[in-house]
């Protein structure tokens, strides 16, 4: 997905004079051609996320759309105030692309994890949040949002789904329809969810735009008043959006996601998924328990 992101952003920078790219000493090799060919607009600023995001807001104020690429906790966490006040409050356009997802950098420790990203983003009204599941999906969602005049956050992951779904900005994709209830697969959880569901008679909805949340598709496809929510970030992070979407119905909801605790293990991302019960066999058990009882 990172390679696709570099290709997509590089193309935009090359084709649009009124754009700029800021790197936080991340992605310098991948963006080397852009940094060389458009050195006035494409800058490796070094390590100062908060000041840099305000500078980017100033550029946006003057009609240059900024792209910022960094590691998720240092953009959404460290520079939260700048995103909230300089972009959302002031209604400025900007694109914030991050690598790392919840714990892709598993060996680097908790400082480099960001399972809270979507919850932080949801406290900043006006900030769009994209979490594509594959490179192709990223390309589609990026192309339809980078120039929409809003601040947009893009979460990248190194652990993509195998197949591209038919995605569109602001819309959930209906992967299959069933009668026992709805399973919501968020972003990179789709592979595990499809595998886990097997031939269970359930509906699968796939979300790659997390803000704005497509409550209409959920409401239209709600069956048997049961929702199993599978998220690759803190468990239940999208619950408020779901409850808001189905608030006039009595619905039973079960959440699968990253536990809400400081994770002090290292190892691989997959080892963490296993530890947290986020792999096919664990999700399958949850599905059986939830929809068959």
């Amino acid at each position: 997905m990172r390679k696709q992101m570099i290709d997509s952003v590089s193309k935009v920078i090359a084709e649009n004079e009124n754009t700029s790219l800021f790197l936080v000493d991340i992605g310098v090799w991948g963006f080397r051609d852009v940094l060389k060919n458009y050195s006035e607009r494409a800058i490796n600023c070094g390590i100062f996320e908060d000041g840099m995001i305000s500078i980017a807001a100033g550029m946006s104020l003057s009609g240059i759309t900024p792209f910022i690429y960094g590691i998720s906790p240092f953009i959404l966490g460290r520079a939260y105030d700048q995103l909230k006040l300089d972009f959302c409050y002031q209604k400025l356009a900007g694109n914030f692309i991050t690598t790392g997802a919840a714990y892709d950098f598993s060996k680097l420790g908790y400082s480099h994890y960001c399972p809270e990203d979507i919850e932080l983003a949801r406290t900043m009204p006006g900030l769009e949040f994209i979490a594509a599941g594959t490179p192709k999906e990223f390309e589609i969602l990026f192309n339809s949002t980078w120039n929409d005049g809003n601040p947009t956050y893009y979460r990248l992951s190194n652990y993509c789904n195998k197949f591209d779904a038919k995605v569109a900005f602001g819309k959930a994709a209906v992967i299959k329809k069933g009668s026992k209830g709805v399973v919501i697969a968020v972003s990179t959880m789709l592979d595990s969810v499809i595998e886990a569901c097997g031939d269970e008679d359930v509906t699968i909805l796939y979300y790659t735009t997390l803000v704005p949340f497509d409550g209409i598709t959920l409401r239209e496809n709600l069956v048997n008043e049961k929702i199993l929510l599978c998220e690759p970030h803190f468990e239940g992070a999208l619950l408020p959006a779901i409850i808001d979407s189905v608030k006039d119905c009595a619905v039973k909801i079960k959440c699968v996601g990253v536990p809400r605790k400081i994770n002090r293990n290292y190892g691989t991302k997959i080892e963490k998924d296993i530890c947290f019960g986020l792999i096919d066999k664990d999700i399958r058990l949850e599905i059986r328990k939830f929809f068959n009882n």
Partner: peptide, 19 residues
């Protein structure tokens, strides 16, 4: 919020320089 305006102004000046 203090500490925001000056960096924004730097961004405005940078945008002008680019243009």
């Amino acid at each position: 919020s203090l500490g925001h305006g000056f960096p924004m102004a730097v961004g405005v000046a940078m945008a002008h320089k680019i243009k």
